[in-house]
Design a protein around this nucleic acid. Structure first.
Length: 472
RNA sequence: GCUCCCUUCGUCUAGCGGUUAGGACGCGGCCCUCUCAAGGCUGAAACACGAGUUCGAUUCUCGUAGGGAGCGCCA
């Protein structure tokens, strides 16, 4: 039997980082076995499902390159099927109509909790034969009251539940729509899902679902319940932990492969290896290597990985993302160097494409003012003359390349009996407006001769003003 | 409260009865160096606790503690 997995998010919000990890593991498992991966949108809750969420999920999956072979399947388009299956259970006596009102159920649970009991449906409609007029009933599944259910989970091992601890859950709402527990079971069976890989918040649900599967006469799939991803503080991942929406990572200049690589190492490992290409992940992924304990999300490590990917990626693969960042910053890229050159010179000092764009703005745009600290430290009277000499040398240079620039600065430094840095740093401040940049030669080459000369002139004027002020 | 799950450096993890408990992120130091990075070397840092099983437990079993999940006409 060929492996078939699915990712089944509910479109009630953006695509969550934890959801992505679940999707990734399901996808990897299917790809590893040369099987199929299905995307199913669990939108049975029409109150909370939105088209915007569906779009966000699809966008996120596309951005990450998690492709599916079937779907997206929308559960709202399969209501007839659920109804038909529910009718079957009703006819078999495996399910029954329940006429209890929400108020009645709330009161029942409140009483149970007050009495120190486990809140659960007490089965009061189990044997009812007469309908209640004016009430459109829900359908409840008749869960066995004795015996136990055993689940052999691929990551948890054997888990046993006493049926007596389970209650009769609603499978069809009063309005005729299915609930989650029912639609998953029907869909997984209809789609012939062989492996259900999902978050371990569903582990307890599995016991209930397994009974429905049996009542429907289906074979149950293999289960693998993945540990949760918690926030840095160990609490459940939520908005207050910063970006939990994957698309925010795209917008902040993270690379999809880096995000996937980070996520695959949360709960899964292959010896000491930290960096995996997609092909390696697919080749090496095994459910046996999934760790059962929850893990915390570490933005620092993601950032480190992202930088590793920025360093290792072909420059051509990064320019679209970098351009997007410049566009966000309203920077005109037309009168600057090719973006591949920018990538090559900044890749080792940027952890994200956003950071790369921010730290290279002066390549495309003049800065408003020189950083005060850098200016005070490096644009002093003593460097006036050497700086003017460098300016003259640069003006005469042909071609204006990093090597030639390097040689020119070196010879001026030698002539003035200055160390390279004593001249390089003032030059850096003059040309970039700050004390930090890539090596001065490639920086100047990237900025271009005209801009460099104009900025050096401005710096010389700055020094002159400073000397004049000090002289008064 | 009840049921289920989890527990190795701060974090992610390796380990699958005998190891100086390894790697990675982060942190400190040194080297490299025109700044910043990147890179190299290096340091500090962990088996939650208590009983068993065993010649021997980080590893197996059971408790305890701590954390998490579920207990909806949400998924």
């Amino acid at each position: 039997m060929t492996v078939k997995t699915r990712f089944a998010p509910s479109p009630t919000g953006f695509l969550h980082i934890g959801g992505v990890r679940t999707a990734l593991f399901s996808w990897l498992y299917a790809r590893h076995h040369g099987g199929q991966f299905v995307l199913r949108i669990e939108d049975t809750d029409r109150e909370r499902s939105t088209q915007a969420s569906i779009d966000a999920i699809l966008d996120g999956m596309h951005w990450l390159g998690l492709d599916w072979d079937e779907g997206p399947v929308y559960q709202t388009q399969r209501f007839d099927r659920y109804r038909e299956q529910a009718d079957r259970l009703l006819a078999d006596g495996a399910a029954y109509h329940c006429y209890c009102s929400t108020d009645e159920l709330d009161a029942m649970r409140a009483a149970q909790v007050a009495a120190g009991q486990n809140p659960r449906y007490d089965g009061r409609c189990r044997e009812r034969t007469e309908p209640v007029t004016g009430v459109s009933p829900v359908v409840r599944f008749r869960t066995p009251m004795e015996g136990e259910v055993v689940i052999d989970d691929a990551v948890r091992g054997r888990v046993v539940y006493a049926n007596a601890d389970l209650d009769d859950l609603v499978i069809m709402r009063g309005d005729g729509s299915p609930t989650y527990h029912f639609s998953v079971v029907v869909d997984d069976a209809d789609m012939q899902i062989t492996h259900v890989i999902r978050g371990d918040d569903h582990l307890n649900n599995t016991a209930r679902q397994v009974h429905i599967i049996a009542a429907l006469g289906h074979k149950r799939p293999a289960y693998a319940h993945l540990p949760m991803i918690l926030g840095e503080d160990g609490a459940r991942l939520s908005k207050r932990h910063g970006a939990v929406n994957v698309l925010e990572y795209r917008d902040n200049g993270y690379l999809p492969d880096a995000v996937l690589n980070y996520l695959v190492r949360l709960g899964w490992s292959h010896g000491d290896q930290e960096i995996f290409t997609r092909d390696e992940m697919i080749e090496l992924f095994r459910l046996e290597d999934v760790n059962p304990s929850a893990s915390r999300f570490s933005p620092e490590k993601l950032t480190w990985l992202n930088q590793q990917y920025i360093i290792a990626s072909p420059a051509a693969d990064l320019i679209d993302g970098l351009a997007a960042q410049y566009r966000r910053m309203d920077i005109d890229m037309t009168n600057g160097p090719p973006l591949v050159d920018v990538v090559e010179t900044y890749r080792e000092r940027a952890t994200t494409l956003a950071e790369m764009a921010e730290s290279s703005v002066y390549v495309f745009q003049d800065f408003a003012e020189i950083d005060a600290n850098a200016a005070r430290k490096h644009l002093r009277g003593v460097v006036r003359a050497p700086l003017a000499d460098v300016r003259a040398a640069l003006a005469a240079l042909d071609p204006f390349t990093a090597d030639a620039i390097q040689a020119a600065i070196q010879s001026v430094a030698d002539a003035c009996e200055l160390g390279f840095g004593k001249l390089g740093q003032p030059l850096r401040v003059a040309v970039t407006g700050g004390g930090v940049s890539p090596p001065i030669d490639v920086t100047l080459a990237l900025i271009g001769r005209e801009r460099c000369l104009a900025r050096i002139d401005a710096a010389l004027e700055f020094i002159d003003r400073r000397i004049a002020a000090a002289g008064d």
